[in-house]
Simulated scan of single mutants.
Amino acid sequence: MPPRPPKPCRKPGCRKLTSEPGGFCAEHLALVEQAQIQRRRAFDQRRTGAASRGYGQRWRELREQKLRQDPLCARCGRAAQMVHHRDENPRNNSLENLASLCRDCHERLHGRLR
């Protein structure tokens, strides 16, 4: 595959050319990464605790029960580590709504892995 043609950096006012996939030159790529880190830290500070989101002691016990009942991933058959709400509602804790998944399959379902 031929190399991608250089394009102007996406940072306004920068005249450098780059072939980087993100569109920023090496100088401004570091600034973008720093901004992402700061956004993540701010989000983590605003985020409430797990118990207030519905993942308290009762959930931990139910999760352990489900993993004992179905120790293998429902998608790929590897050892399950996570329990997923099929309807995406963390308040619906019926056993029929829960699926045991390995970490990779769970992350793929939530779009965190590419």
Rank of each mutant, 00 (worst) to 15 (best):
E88T: 11
A99C: 09
F24P: 07
H110S: 06
H85C: 07
C105G: 09
P12Y: 00
C9W: 00
P5L: 02
C25S: 09
R68N: 13
H28K: 01
A74H: 05
L67I: 07
L17R: 10
F24R: 02
R15A: 13
N97H: 03
F43M: 11
M1Q: 10
E33H: 10
R86V: 15
R112A: 04
A51M: 06
H85M: 02
D44V: 08
L113T: 15
L109W: 04
E27Y: 09
R40Q: 11
Q65W: 13
R53K: 13
R58A: 14
L31D: 15
R15K: 15
P2F: 03
P21M: 00
R41C: 04
R68F: 05
R15C: 08
N92Q: 01
R68K: 15
H84P: 07
A99Q: 15
I37Q: 08
L17A: 13
M82Y: 05
R68C: 08
Q57D: 12
A80Q: 02
F24E: 01
D70M: 02
N97R: 03
P71M: 00
F24H: 04
H110L: 02
R58K: 14
A74D: 13
V32K: 00
T48W: 01
Q45V: 14
C76T: 13
P2V: 12
L113A: 09
D70W: 02
L98N: 05
A99Y: 06
P71C: 00
L109H: 10
L109E: 15
G56V: 09
E20R: 10
R103F: 08
A30G: 09
H85R: 02
G111L: 01
E64T: 11
C9G: 02
P71I: 01
N89Q: 02
A80K: 02
R39W: 05
G111K: 01
C9Q: 01
Q34H: 06
R63G: 07
E107R: 13
R78P: 06
C14L: 06
R53M: 11
R47Q: 08
A74F: 03
K66D: 04
Q69L: 12
E107L: 14
C102P: 12
K7F: 05
E61N: 13
P12E: 00
L109Y: 05
C14H: 06
C105E: 10
D87Q: 02
E107K: 09
A42F: 07
S52I: 07
H84S: 08
R78Q: 15
R60M: 10
H84E: 11
A51I: 11
C73G: 12
L101N: 08
Q65A: 10
E96Y: 01
C9P: 06
S19G: 15
E107W: 05
R15V: 14
C102K: 05
Q45A: 07
Q57Y: 12
G23V: 06
R15S: 15
C102H: 08
E88S: 11
G22V: 07
R47T: 14
T48N: 02
N93Q: 11
A42H: 12
P71R: 00
C105L: 09
C14E: 05
P12M: 00
L62I: 15
P6E: 03
C76H: 09
G13C: 04
P90C: 03
P3V: 05
P12T: 01
G22P: 05
A74E: 12
L31K: 10
Q45F: 03
A30K: 12
L113Y: 03
N92M: 01
Q69W: 10
D70V: 13
R47K: 09
C76K: 05
A30Y: 03
H85P: 15
T48K: 01
R40K: 13
C76W: 07
